[in-house]
Design a binder for these strands. Structure first.
Lengths: 145, 145
DNA sequence: CTCTAATGGTTAGAGCTCTAACTGTCAAAG
DNA sequence: CTTTGACAGTTAGAGCTCTAACCATTAGAG
């Protein structure tokens, strides 16, 4: 039958992604940073000395983008970059104490956001959803992390 | 037992949304326009005379954003705007023949993209996924269309 | 050892998004 | 009929993203 669907699966997917972003922004707004900066900072706290290329990969973005993002964070003293002694091309990035302090709780807040969004689903449904989405992403390019 | 999940549901959701965007960009790049312009143009072909506020709503964006987006399209002669005769505040937007011609096939291409992404799932699984996502979005703010 | 290709980053330029402040128009109350 | 508030849209300023062009450094081939 396949009646024309008013809201496709991909519409719903984009919508949910958008909602997560918006919810996250509400938490982060007080810190005077952006979601992207929050993700980067959080990642650097978990992975001190990460190289820019890695950051570009896990955020599914470009090296150019990471470059300007980190420049902004560095300008504000939230991040530090030092060239790798073994390979000067690579720049290792670290969250400064200020940066780490600023982002403390971000991870937790995002987890809370996720939980709020998924609240309508019970554990079984979440497992099903996770399985289905994994099946889809398995055939996609680019790893998530 | 709730072992720490390496890739959360929301991670997967964002990933899929990103993949859709990228795939769409591949199609659209030859037209020298952006995804956003493509969506707007496509919407205006389907809904001639739409008002900017509506466009902002369905794209889950701001009036300011629509304003500049349409300015770009208008500058290139792909869109026309005329004030509503009954309410001069409102500006009704129309895709020009050139604009409509440019975007012809976009909708179909996007549907094809969606189908490719969802290829790993059979009809039953898609139905389940759609149901689960709908359950989630039912509790979210902002309608999709 | 040298030449070439790959690799990590950066810059420039353009588009999108947001917030905040502002214009002009319409509508409703008094 | 005026005043006040809601509403549609715009502009300015800043951040993010992308592509394309470009540096510097490193690795590999010969």
């Amino acid at each position: 039958m396949d009646a024309p669907r008013l809201t496709t699966i991909l519409d719903l997917v984009r919508w949910i992604g958008w909602a997560q972003r918006k919810a996250g922004e509400d938490w982060i707004r007080s810190r005077e940073i952006t979601m992207e900066q929050g993700f980067a900072l959080g990642y650097l706290v978990q992975n001190p000395g990460a190289i820019q290329r890695d950051l570009a990969e896990i955020t599914r973005t470009s090296p150019a983008s990471v470059s300007s993002l980190l420049q902004g964070l560095e300008r504000r003293g939230l991040v530090e970059r030092r060239a790798d002694s073994a390979d000067v091309r690579s720049k290792r990035a670290y969250a400064t104490p200020t940066g780490a302090e600023l982002i403390a709780g971000f991870e937790a807040a995002m987890t809370a956001v996720d939980d709020t969004i998924l609240a309508p689903l019970d554990q079984t449904e979440r497992a099903t959803l996770h399985a289905l989405l994994t099946k889809v992403t398995a055939e996609l390019p680019q790893p998530t992390r």
